[in-house]
Design a protein around this nucleic acid. Structure first.
Lengths: 189, 189
DNA sequence: GATATATCCTAATGCAATTAGGTATCTACA
DNA sequence: TGTAGATACCTAATTGCATTAGGATATATC
C-alpha cells in the first residue's frame, strides 16, 4: 500500500476545515481518518490523542485570529483601528465558525501562554493607545472590548438576532460607535 | 426489582447537577444512568435521546436565568437595574457553569421561541426603559448588553483574566459604570 | 543495495448511544 | 381484593468513537 504522506500539520489543517464544515464539537479522529481514507489508528503516529488534536486546532485558530488582527490594525489608529479589529473578530466568526468555536477550547496554562490569545490581547492594547487611558483603565477596556468581540458574534451566529429587526449589521456598527465614544470619554464618570 | 421512580423532570434536574459538576460537554446518558444506578437503556422511557436531554437542560438553564433576571430587576430602575441584571448573568455563570454552558446549546427555532431566552430579552428591554431610547436604539442596546453579559463571564470562567492584574471584579464594575454612562448618552454621537 | 525509521496496518478493548423486545411492578377498576 | 392494563425497568444486540499493542512495509539514508 502506498503511503499517503500524513503529517501533524496536514492533520491539523484538515481538522480545521472539517470543524468549519460540520462544527468543532463534531470533530473526531474517526472523521479525520475517513477524510484521508486511512485507518483510525494510523492517526496516532501524528497526534497524541483526540484532545491533542483539538488543542492544536484551537492554537491554530487563535494564531490565525491574531495574525488577522495584526494585519488589520497595521497603519490604523483610533476609531479606525477599533473598527478594523472588531471586524476581524466578526468576519472570522462568520468565515470560520468551527475555528471560532475552537478558539474557546479550554487550554492548559502552558498552551494558553504561547497561544495567539496573548498576542491578540497585546494587539488590542495597541489599539487602545489611541485613547489615552491609564494602564489600569486600559486593562478594563481590553476586557470590555474582548467580551463584546466574543459575545456579539456568538449570539449572532447562534441566530439570537435573526428574529428581530433591524439587521445585526446595524447594531454592530452602532455599538462600535458607542464603544468608541465610551473609550474617548472613559476618564469621565 | 423495586422501581426507583424516574421521571423526565427528575432526569433533567439531575442532569443539570451533573453538568454543573463535570461540565455540560461531559454530560452523557450513561453518566446519568449511573447516577440513578439504573441501566442506560432505561432512560429511553423518559427522554427521546441524548440530544433531547441536552435540549431540556438548555431550556431549564434559560428558564432559570430568566427567572433570576425577573426577580433581580423587580423594583429597580436605571443603573440599579442594569447592575442587578448584569450580576444575575455573572453570578449564574459562576454558580452554575454547566448550566451557563447549556444556555448556549444550539436550539431549533421552535424550542428557542418558547425558551427563557426570549423572556430574558424582554427583561433587558424593560431595564432599558430607564434610559429613554428609541425602539431601534433599544434593540441595539439589548444586543450590546447581551454580548457583554455573555462574553465577560465566558472569558472570566475560561481564565482569560486571571493572568493579569487587576481582579476581574474591578473590570466588571468599571465596565458597568461605563455602559451605564454610554446608555445615558446614547443619543449623542 | 542494505538497513533503519517511521508510516500505516490489523486486532482487540472499553465506553457511549440507540433500538427491539421482554418481564415485573404499580395502579385503577370491578 | 383480585385482576387487567399501562409502564418502568431490564436484557441483548448493534453501531460508532477512542485508545493501545504490536506487526509489516514503504521510504530515506548510507
Amino acid at each position: 500500500m502506498p503511503r499517503i504522506g500524513l503529517s501533524r500539520d496536514r492533520l491539523v489543517e484538515a481538522a480545521a476545515k472539517l470543524a468549519d464544515e460540520h462544527g468543532f464539537d463534531k470533530l473526531t479522529l474517526a472523521a479525520l481518518a475517513r477524510h484521508f481514507a486511512v485507518k483510525l489508528a494510523s492517526l496516532y503516529s501524528h497526534v497524541k490523542n483526540s484532545d491533542d488534536l483539538k488543542t492544536s486546532v484551537a492554537l491554530f485558530a487563535l494564531s490565525e485570529l491574531a495574525d488577522r488582527a495584526d494585519e488589520a490594525v497595521a497603519g490604523r489608529a483610533g476609531k479606525d483601528a477599533l473598527v478594523a479589529l472588531a471586524n476581524v473578530h466578526r468576519n472570522f466568526a462568520r468565515e470560520h465558525p468551527g475555528l471560532f468555536e475552537a478558539a474557546r477550547f479550554r487550554l492548559d496554562a502552558t498552551s494558553a501562554a504561547v497561544s495567539g490569545g496573548a498576542r491578540l490581547s497585546r494587539t488590542t492594547q495597541a489599539v487602545l493607545r489611541g485613547y489615552a487611558l491609564t494602564d489600569t483603565d486600559c486593562t478594563h477596556a481590553i476586557r470590555l472590548l474582548g467580551s463584546f468581540f466574543l459575545g456579539f458574534p456568538v449570539l449572532e451566529s447562534a441566530g439570537s438576532f435573526s428574529h428581530s429587526q433591524p439587521e445585526a449589521e446595524a447594531s454592530w456598527s452602532r455599538s462600535l460607535n458607542a464603544l468608541d465614544a465610551l473609550l474617548r470619554g472613559w476618564a469621565l464618570p
